[in-house]
Amino acid sequence: MNDKVRESIKTICILVAITIICVALLAILNDVLYVAPDMDSFDRTAKSKSGYTLVEQNVKMTNGIVKMVAEGEMLNGEAVVGLYVEGKGSSPAGSFTLVVIIHKATGEILGVRKLVDGGDVGYEYLDDNLRSLMGTVIDGSTVFDSDNFVVQAGATYSTKACRNAMQAVAEYYYINYLQGGQE
């Protein structure tokens, strides 16, 4: 009986040994290739006086994922919140990643920029449709619902993805800045 047990233990040891070697390599590689969340994409959208400070990462909202939240101060001294948000389109269109800058106190959208466009060639969501969102004030979590969001003809999937992203932004801002205490 014990040779069967010994043989099993030898097998398990080999298995665990291979796992440890592989994962050790990966863990070290993961640290070496660590990607610091790039703050400069915020700066490119809205120039800040002294750069943005990271607040939070990877917050899952109902319609999308807020990948990064950072706060900073504009050149004119106004405090702003930067949001790095990913919205999911339905299957043919990939996901969209937007950078949104919101005025901390009033909730007005100061800057929107498209980082990753998941739409197929010829289905991209046009930048000026995004720019039309500038200036809308987030007064509630449902400010970007389907009725008042610019639907781009022919690119319904991409529009849906962008709308999801903006709804996640509104929801996050509503929960953390309108309702919740100032962080």
Binding site: T19, C22, V23, L26, A27, N30
Partner: peptide, 12 residues
């Protein structure tokens, strides 16, 4: 905080 290992753990 080790979700980068998800592929290896899942397939295993």
């Amino acid at each position: 905080g080790i979700e980068y290992l998800r592929t290896i753990v899942f397939i295993f």
